[in-house]
Structures are given as C-alpha cells and as structure tokens.
Design a protein around this nucleic acid. Structure first.
Length: 302
DNA sequence: AATACGGGGTC
DNA sequence: GACCCAGTATT
C-alpha cells in the first residue's frame, strides 16, 4: 500500500486548475437560485451536460420557481422534459416542487435531511444542492469524483461498480472542513473528472495532479472490475418500448388512439406490459371509449 | 446487493 | 455495438 495521498496535495492543484478551466454553465452563474441548482442536478442524473443545458434554460425561463412547476400541467412538464431520459425524473421533479412549496414555503431547504426527503433527491443530489446552491460543506460523490479518487488516491483505473462505504469515507477525508472550501472542492473535483480525468480517454498530460496520481504512478493499469461490469442493453428492452410510447404521447396534439399505440411495437405482449407499467407509474393515462365500439385513447397526465 | 429506468453521442 | 453520462427508488 503506497503512502496515503495528502488531501491538500490533490486539492490545491485541482482547485487552481478549476479557477482557470471551469465551464461557464448557467446553473453556476452569479444569478443562480437554489431551485435552479436543484433542477439542474435532477436533470443531470444520468443525462450529459450538453443535453441538459438547453433544456434547463428553456425550463427555467418558463417555470422560474418551484411554485410555477407545482402549478403546471404534468403533460407540459413531461413535454418540456422532452428526451432527457427517464421521464419519471420529470414526475419526481414536479412532486419535488410541490413538496418545496408545501413543506418549506417555496424555499429549497439547506439541510441534508430535508433535502433527502424530497422526491427525486438522493444522497448525491442532496450533497450537491448543499454545496452548489448554499455553499455549505457536504461530501459530493458522483461518478466524476469517484473516478478521480479511484485513480489519484486508490491507483485504480475505475471505481468499483457499486459505491462502497470505504469509498464514502475516502471521499470525506478529502473534503475541507470549511464550507467555502468544501463547496469549491466539490465543484473542482467534479469538473476535473468531467473534462480531464474522463472515463474513456483521460487527458493525463493536461492533468494538474499527474505528479501525485497513484494510477499514473502505477503505469495506468487496466480495470480490475472489468469482468463484473455488464453493459445494459437497450435495443428490444422495455426501456426502448416505454420510450417509444412516451415519445408518441409527447408529440401528439390530442389523445392517441389505441391502434396508434399498437403500431409502435411488434411484440403485443411486451407492449401491453409496458403500457400498463406506464399507467401505473403515472406517466400515461388511458381514457376508455365512450362505448364498446369506440376504442380507448391514451394521453399524458394533466 | 441487484435491478429497472431513456436516449444519444462517441469510439 | 459497446460504453458512458453530476443517480434514485425499489426489491
């Protein structure tokens, strides 16, 4: 086991690099609001920055605060979400807006427990909102930070498939004690992972901590967990079918007849199961025909 | 601890 | 065609 990496030896160059190279993202602007930060974090759950940015701008222009989202039609919310993926996140975001209005008078809370209690907010998002919206200390551990620490501190090519307690403890040991420093480290370490210490082709030559990186020192060994990482398929899965149904309902001007839904997918059984699941999830609504001769229609929830 | 959950860009 | 993306909720 190599000598433990001194937190400051990693932090100082990374934060300095961040001052120079931070992207100019709208949810980082001086006029940002806690709600805007929360919206960005939910949109960024499994969706890349480049796709979120335009959607976030349009969303925030249309619904600047949680009360605006709370009052909106769910159908409009789902259409504005468009193709950001996992539309249940849009549903949760609206539930979250309503919870912020009802529980907190329209102000995003800044304490961990209250944030975690909001729909769609898990450990990462709660920590990120604390740091980026309120400048408070928290342990922000997303896929970027996990990778940076796995390489720089643990000498591994990639973090383990599932987050471990040891990993959280390691991450916590790098977080400065003060609020401002912790928030800065969170943003800087994430940005390094996003721009330099990337999953695919890391730009080690441009890395501010190449001299202290354990992975680089070890000769950039391969991924030890490669055998246990299974890539999730998409083609032919329920996720693809659900996506097609949601796209049809989103783009439709009015109710969609049963036969239009039926034409979406060749496997009638799978399609049926997926539509039923969407109804159960609250992502779609089935409107029965007025009599036995008129077919049912489908639409987004109001 | 595993699994479900979108969709698109990139190598 | 595989891999990845500022994860969360459920089982």
């Amino acid at each position: 086991m190599p000598t433990a990496l001194d937190p400051a030896a990693l932090r100082t160059p990374v934060v300095a690099w961040f001052e120079e190279h931070a992207r100019d993202l709208p949810w980082r602007a001086a006029d940002r609001t806690p709600w805007g930060v929360l919206v960005s974090e939910v949109m960024l759950q499994q969706t890349p920055v480049v796709r979120v940015e335009p959607a976030w701008r349009a969303w925030m222009r249309r619904w600047p605060g949680p009360a605006d989202v709370a009052a909106a039609s769910t159908a409009d919310v789902l259409r504005a979400w468009d193709r950001l993926g996992y539309p249940r996140r849009a549903l949760r975001l609206q539930e979250c807006a309503r919870a912020v209005v009802e529980r907190h008078g329209g102000d995003v809370p800044d304490d961990e427990a209250a944030l975690l209690a909001l729909p769609g907010v898990g450990s990462y998002t709660a920590a990120a909102v604390r740091a980026f919206a309120f400048g408070r200390r928290s342990v922000v551990l997303d896929t970027n930070v996990r990778r940076v620490l796995a390489r720089a501190a643990a000498g591994a090519a990639l973090p383990a498939p599932a987050q471990t307690v040891a990993e959280v403890r390691l991450a916590a040991s790098f977080v400065p004690a003060d609020d401002a420093g912790a928030a800065r480290w969170a943003a800087a370490s994430m940005e390094l992972g996003a721009l330099v210490c990337t999953a695919r082709a890391p730009r080690c030559d441009a890395c501010p901590v190449r001299d202290v990186c354990a992975w680089r020192a070890a000769g950039r060994p391969g991924d030890a967990h490669a055998d246990r990482r299974r890539t999730q398929a998409f083609t032919g899965t329920d996720r693809q079918v659900r996506g097609r149904v949601m796209a049809l309902l989103r783009d439709a001007l009015g109710p969609v007849p049963q036969e239009a839904v039926d034409a979406l997918w060749p496997d009638a059984g799978q399609l049926r199961r997926c539509v039923d699941a969407l109804l159960a999830d609250g992502l779609a609504v089935r409107v029965p025909g007025v009599d036995d001769d008129t077919p049912a229609t489908y639409r987004l929830p109001h």
